[in-house]
Design a protein around this nucleic acid. Sequence first.
DNA 1: AACATGATCAACCGCGATTTC
DNA 2: TGAAATCGCGGTTGATCATGT
Length: 259
Amino acid sequence: MGRSPCCSKEGLNRGAWTALEDRILTEYIKIHGEGKWRNLPKRAGLKRCGKSCRLRWLNYLRPDIKRGNITRDEEELIIRLHKLLGNRWSLIAGRLPGRTDNEIKNYWNTNIGKKIQAPSTKGRPQEKPNPTMEEGSAPDRLKPSTGSCVVRTKATRCTRVVVTSAGQQVGHEVLPSLTREPVDFSKSVSEESNDHLLNFMMDLEMDGNLLSDFLDVDFSLLENIGSNTCDNGHSSPAEDTLHGSDFQSVAPPNIQSSQ
DNA sequence: AACATGATCAACCGCGATTTC
DNA sequence: TGAAATCGCGGTTGATCATGT
């Protein structure tokens, strides 16, 4: 199939959005709702491709977008989720209410990823401290050794993820309205652990590759993070680690996925 | 003050997945 | 059932701003 040529059509605006365009798009979506991106520009009177409108709305205009710096808690969550999910930014963003996949991706590339890749002590590239971070923020402590970080250039697409409350099973029914329901993974979910771990992996339909990557994750490293995470009063009990039963603090109680 | 370099992030690109006909 | 249309995702680019020399 390939890509649609929408953005290369002549006569369409490209580049930065103007305030007027923003207003037109916002007003239109307020009235007609999201979706039908292809026809939206024409109907709304915008000289933009639908793709561009969708992106602008999702990443910038949506009313529930949270502006401002990524907090330390958010950063730690991002790190932990990235450890589990790799570069599945949309999935990660789904666990951070108000944050967009683009924002998280950018943040990872400019902050976390850089820090993680940097040599542990010296030779670290000059880095601007995150204003919201204090010394010893997660990435500094999280120096994953040797590429235990899962980075896939092409992530397996994982749509139709259904998050339910703990222990509640939902069949492989598509429930779009729930697919991005935010869940607070900072809380420990339940006692029964290994079952959840297995369910989580199965629910994500991990292929052999992903599973092996997952099993390569250096959990002891994350355990250290948990035990060091206290300089701002942030709790660092075992529930913050990924080790063993604590996996649930990151893994959703139930995630069901069907491709 | 002027230029070079680096950091940030909004926007675009290309492709696979899904939906529609 | 298969092709076309559309959507959504992750990777990349480039404009802009900040900082260093």
